[in-house]
């Protein structure tokens, strides 16, 4: 993963969610994005996650100009390189943990046996192999988020994008989740970009980008990295 620059403005009279934002994220980084509500950090995540495309400016992902890709091409990019973790977990209801984790693998076209094995391995990594056949509603919030992390992992992404992953969790669970994220970053070399508004969670990253009003206010190393 190399070189990302991106300027994004949405029309003339429109709200400029992102107003000339530029930064690079390098492979293996753990970046925390912070800022007050409406600062554009979620929009930045959507663009990074190829869910949204900038109205102007360029975004290079592994040297590919994402702004020039159509919907389906961006879906392919998400499928093969990206993993998502959301604040609200976003697991499919009435579907077992295992099946939830298998979801990205289905779209990768992986056969049933290998899919199950890989999903189980991912669940094992987050310490939930024993809950593979539980319904999300039978799991605690922390467990659900770990299933979501397993789902993001199963697709073997280069980058995991986490949008307030600890927003709904108490401190103890949050710490567990963050430690898991650090582990993924350090041991598996997965690049992590995380939006959060909790300073102590942001400190788990190595680098902090602070956004205000659609602009990058500052971009520094965290105390942990320093």
């Amino acid at each position: 993963m190399t070189d990302i620059t991106r300027v994004y403005g949405s029309g003339e009279a429109e709200v400029r969610a992102l107003d000339g934002v530029s930064f690079d994220i390098f492979p293996g980084e753990f970046v925390s994005v912070m800022g007050p509500s409406g600062s554009g950090k979620s929009t930045a995540m959507n663009v990074l996650g190829c869910l949204d495309s900038p109205s102007s400016g360029g975004y290079l992902f592994n040297g590919v100009d994402v702004a020039a890709l159509n919907h389906d091409q961006r879906a392919l990019l998400r499928r093969h390189y990206l993993g998502f973790i959301f604040q609200g977990y976003n697991l499919l209801p009435r579907t077992s943990a295992l099946q939830n984790v298998e979801l990205p693998l289905i779209y990768k076209g992986i056969g049933r046996e290998e899919r199950e094995a890989r999903a189980l391995a991912a669940l094992d990594k987050v310490g939930l192999a024993s809950r593979a056949h539980h319904d999300p509603s039978a799991l605690s919030g922390g467990q659900q988020q770990r299933v979501a992390i397993a789902r993001a992992l199963a697709g073997e992404p280069q980058v995991i994008l986490a949008d307030e992953p600890t927003g709904n969790l108490d401190t103890k669970r949050s710490v567990e989740i963050m430690e898991l994220m650090v582990e993924l970053n350090q041991q598996d070399g997965i690049t992590i970009v995380m939006v959060t508004h909790e300073e102590d969670m942001a400190e788990y990253g190595k680098r902090l980008i602070w956004m205000v009003d659609g602009k990058v206010e500052y971009d520094r190393l965290t105390t942990r990295a320093a």
Binding site: H71, D72, R78, P104, K108
Partner: peptide, 16 residues
């Protein structure tokens, strides 16, 4: 709707 969003996030194309 949310399920569809999740599927799209993990890489489902519109045609799928």
């Amino acid at each position: 709707t949310r399920e569809i969003g999740i599927r799209m996030a993990v890489g489902a194309q519109a045609s799928q």
